[in-house]
Simulated scan of single mutants.
Amino acid sequence: MSMRRAVAAATGVLLGMSVLTLTASPAQAAPRQDTKSNKSPVTVAHRGASGYAPENTLAAVSKADKLGFDWVENDVQRTKDGELVVMHDTTLSRTTNAESLYPKRSPWKVSDFTAKEISRLDAGSWFSDDYAGEKVPTLEQYLRHITKSGQKLLLELKAPELYPGVEAQTLRELRSEGWLDSSHLKSKLVIQSFNANSVRTTHVLNSGVKTGFLGNPKVSELDSYAQFTDQINPTHSTVTKDYVKAVHARKGPLGKQMQVFTWTVNDASTARTVDKAGVDGIISNFPDVVRDATGG
């Protein structure tokens, strides 16, 4: 598909909008979490099972699958030539060998490299020699992988203010891969961001998509957020029972009770604490630790 056409199509939507930014146990195989019959929080594998495999790679997604987790979280950014890739940092240096492969390309921004250049990078050796040669996946590759495994996706638009039109482009990619049909929209997809305008834009472009805002707005602001987001997803250190109750007292744009998914919880004690506060989901690098602690 033509990514540049998708970007151009979304530019008009975004014009005039200001940017509003606001120790683990060994991995063990376990049955999948049945979130329909289980009242415990949904456990989401953060950047895949990133405590056990290099983050945001297909290997991390596969590890989450082997551990029995349906929900995985990822981060989406755009390359110089308009392709969507799965990468957390806005630079490539921390999780790839970009500095050694392209020594004269400092500061190694994702947006300064083409998709072909990024495809040459090793995104696994920094984590472990066992993952040497693991690649940075495109969003297309990522979606096809989790479609085969039957997993679900909490997709984060990372630093969308750097990539005008990325909301429409991401939705177009999701549609192309079959991820905007009724079954995915009902229970398999959430799009979130730290950028409230980006979440709002996503909702405006496709009101059927479940959305999440990463942060903790004041209780007095929750009514305005409820106009365009279905989840409020704060860091675990800000979660209280009263705050969760305030979020639950409101309905999101899809007409259902707003939810709270908190991040990034990597130990049993914190998992139990946020569980008692009433959160609906817990995002973790070590999802098995969270599942064991919360009874999922």
Results as ranks from 00 to 15, higher is better:
242 D>E: 15
285 N>K: 11
165 G>R: 12
56 N>S: 06
97 N>T: 08
283 I>T: 08
74 N>M: 10
234 P>A: 02
228 F>M: 03
99 E>D: 10
294 T>P: 04
80 K>V: 03
158 K>W: 11
78 R>W: 04
267 D>E: 13
279 V>C: 06
186 K>R: 15
272 R>S: 13
205 L>F: 00
245 K>P: 02
39 K>M: 11
145 H>R: 14
36 K>E: 15
292 D>I: 01
226 A>V: 01
122 D>P: 12
45 A>H: 07
44 V>R: 04
220 S>N: 09
276 K>C: 03
31 P>K: 08
81 D>Y: 01
117 E>M: 06
266 N>E: 02
136 V>W: 04
256 K>G: 09
81 D>R: 03
265 V>L: 11
117 E>G: 03
195 N>P: 11
9 A>Q: 14
91 T>W: 05
153 L>E: 13
283 I>A: 01
270 T>G: 01
89 D>H: 07
168 A>K: 15
100 S>D: 12
239 V>H: 00
151 Q>F: 03
291 R>Y: 05
218 K>T: 05
110 V>K: 04
247 V>R: 10
155 L>R: 07
241 K>Y: 14
237 S>I: 07
81 D>G: 04
101 L>Y: 02
52 Y>K: 08
48 G>K: 03
4 R>S: 05
247 V>K: 11
26 P>I: 13
99 E>P: 01
6 A>F: 09
184 H>F: 11
280 D>M: 09
54 P>L: 05
188 K>V: 02
97 N>V: 10
281 G>T: 13
7 V>D: 02
64 A>M: 02
155 L>V: 05
270 T>R: 04
233 N>C: 00
271 A>P: 13
286 F>S: 05
79 T>M: 09
210 K>I: 00
73 E>T: 00
127 F>C: 05
177 E>K: 14
7 V>A: 08
139 L>K: 00
199 V>R: 06
249 A>G: 10
6 A>P: 02
196 A>I: 03
54 P>Q: 06
271 A>D: 09
6 A>K: 07
